[in-house]
């Protein structure tokens, strides 16, 4: 009995070794391209990157991309230090953040959202800035009902918060009524509070809340691409400067930058930049 069990175990182990050997050898892939790609960075890019990986794997089954959604800062660092093949950021690089080859591959619009019952349909960037700094506290001051404004934002350090505060020019002056740790949570909070205002990636917004126009410009793919919608941020992919990317990594980057990826990227709610 025992011998039988040991024999079985040995067989299993042998099979396992064989299988892994196959995998790393890349003999299973159709086009010979193989290897691993490590991606690291902004949580905001997770949805679009996940769809891109899925589509890429259909053509190149031998390549295994993995994505760690850690944050823009960590993504930039990992590309700089070469700990990841591709780093991802959802904000522009700051001074001192060099040592990377950076390409903008998509643009994400931060939609300003209110409760569907709110009569306010348009806000200027100045009004939004005044609301988020606490200078305007009542909806009647921006053409709405006489009701207090519940200002909902993201936590310090998040890419969306950084982009929003930066574009609005209100860093260090924000007065929130509620801070939440994800775009989904902000949308839920706005959907359940008729006095609320919030912001989230255009891709995440459904019909539970209403998007207001900013300076009269709606948040759509067209206004993001032509740059007229003011609250937008780039999705940037980075590789270490001076290091030749592996064949698989280069193929993945080419795929992201190709027209074949346009539909995948737009299905994920952001706009491709070719």
């Amino acid at each position: 009995m025992k011998k039988k069990a040991i024999g079985l175990l040995a067989l299993l182990l042998a099979a396992l070794v064989l299988l892994t050997a196959c995998d790393s050898g890349g003999t299973a892939s159709g086009d010979g391209l193989s290897g691993r790609i490590s991606l690291n960075g902004s949580t905001s890019t997770e949805r679009v990157i996940a769809s891109l990986i899925e589509a890429f794997r259909e053509e190149h089954p031998g390549v295994t991309p993995t994505f760690d959604a850690t944050g823009s800062g960590a993504g930039i660092t990992s590309a700089m230090e070469g700990t990841a093949d591709i780093g991802l950021s959802s904000r522009h690089l700051r001074d001192g953040e060099d040592g990377v080859d950076a390409i903008i591959f998509a643009i994400d619009g931060l939609a300003v959202i209110v409760h569907p019952d709110n009569p306010v349909t348009d806000l200027s960037t100045d009004q939004i800035a005044a609301i988020y700094t606490g200078a305007i506290t009542n909806w009647s001051e921006v053409g709405g009902d006489d009701a207090p404004i519940a200002v909902i934002g993201r936590e310090a350090g998040s890419g969306s918060r950084g982009a929003f505060d930066d574009i609005m020019g209100i860093e260090d002056q924000v007065v929130h009524d509620q801070e939440l740790t994800s775009g989904g949570a902000v949308i839920t909070a706005v959907a359940t509070n008729s006095f609320a205002i919030g912001y989230s990636s255009l891709s995440a917004v459904g019909d539970t809340v209403r998007i207001v126009t900013v300076n009269g410009i709606p948040c759509t793919e067209e206004t993001l691409l032509d740059g007229s919608y003011p609250i937008q941020r780039p999705f940037i992919l980075m590789t270490q400067l001076g290091t030749e990317p592996s064949e698989a990594t280069q193929a993945f980057i080419d795929f992201i930058m190709s027209p074949a990826a346009t539909e995948i990227i737009s299905n994920a709610g952001v706009v491709q930049v070719l």
């Binding site: 310090a156 350090g157 801070e179 740790t181």
Partner: peptide
């Protein structure tokens, strides 16, 4: 702790 840990460096 929970609010900021995911992005803090």
């Amino acid at each position: 702790i929970a609010m900021e840990l995911s992005y803090a460096t």
